[in-house]
C-alpha cells in the first residue's frame, strides 16, 4: 500500500508544478517540430525528447524528496516502496506523455509501422524514469544531475547508431525500434531494442535501489 500511496502523491506533486509540467510536455514537441519535414528524424528526436523530459523530471522529483525519505524510512516505510512508488508515478507520467505524442504522430506523420512507433515512445518513457532516478541517486545536486542527463542525451543524439558508443547509451533501444518503425527492415531490430531497454531498465532501477538502500539504511540498535 505504501508504494501506491507514494506513487499517487508523487503524481499529484508533479501535477501541481504547472510550469515544470508545461516545459516537460513542450520539450519533445520542439524536438519534433524542428525536423517535422523528415519523418524518421522527427520521430527519433521526439522519442529522445520524451526520454530527456521524463528523466529530468524524475531527477528533480527524486532530489526534492531527499528531506522526506529518511523520515519515511524511520516511520517504517521500506526503501523499495519509496523508490518503487516514485518510479511507478514517473513511469505513468512518461507513458501518458508518450501516448499523447503517439496520437500526434499518428495524425501528423506517415509512419510505416505505427505500432512500433508507439513501442519506441513507450520504451523511451519507461527507460527514462529509472535513468533519472539513478542520476539523482548518484548526483544529489540538481544542476550536476541535469548536466549529466544533458551529456547523456547529447551523446546519444550525435553518436553513430551502429557504433559501440551509441549502444552503451541508455536510449539506443529507442533509435533501434524507431528505425524499424520508420524505415522498416528486420523485426529483429525491435527485439534488439527491447532487450537493450530491458537491460538498461534493470541496471538503472537496480542501481537506484542499491544506492538508496545504502543511503537510507538505518542503524540497528538493540532494545535496552
Amino acid at each position: 500500500m505504501t508504494t501506491l500511496v507514494v506513487a499517487g502523491l508523487s503524481t499529484r506533486e508533479v501535477g501541481r508544478r504547472w510550469a515544470a509540467l508545461a516545459l516537460v510536455i513542450a520539450l519533445p514537441f520542439w524536438f519534433y517540430l524542428v525536423r517535422r519535414d523528415a519523418t524518421g528524424q522527427s520521430m527519433r528526436m521526439l522519442a529522445l525528447g520524451i526520454g530527456w523530459a521524463i528523466s529530468t523530471l524524475t531527477l528533480f522529483v527524486v532530489n526534492a524528496s531527499r528531506g522526506v525519505d529518511p523520515r519515511l524510512r524511520l516511520t517504517g516505510a521500506p526503501v523499495i516502496s519509496i523508490i518503487g512508488g516514485r518510479l511507478l508515478a514517473m513511469t505513468g507520467v512518461g507513458v501518458a506523455l508518450a501516448g499523447g505524442y503517439w496520437i500526434l504522430t499518428w495524425l501528423d506523420q506517415d509512419v510505416l509501422h505505427l505500432g512500433a512507433a508507439a513501442l519506441m515512445m513507450l520504451v523511451s518513457a519507461v527507460v527514462a524514469a529509472p535513468l533519472g532516478s539513478l542520476i539523482g541517486a548518484l548526483l544529489p545536486r540538481e544542476l550536476e544531475g541535469a548536466l549529466a542527463l544533458l551529456s547523456v542525451v547529447a551523446v546519444q543524439m550525435l553518436a553513430d547508431p551502429a557504433g559501440l558508443t551509441a549502444k552503451l547509451m541508455p536510449f539506443w533501444s529507442v533509435r533501434e525500434i524507431g528505425t524499424y518503425a520508420v524505415d522498416g527492415g528486420s523485426f529483429d531490430m525491435v527485439w534488439h531494442g527491447l532487450a537493450h531497454a530491458g537491460v538498461t531498465w534493470l541496471i538503472c532501477a537496480g542501481g537506484t535501489l542499491a544506492l538508496f538502500q545504502w543511503r537510507l539504511r538505518l542503524a540497528r540498535y538493540p532494545e535496552p
Binding site: M1, T2, V6, L9, V68, R71, L72, T75
Partner: peptide
Amino acid sequence: EHFTLFGAAAG
C-alpha cells in the same frame, strides 16, 4: 497529504 504519506509508511 503528508498525514496520508507518513501514515502509509507506518501502516
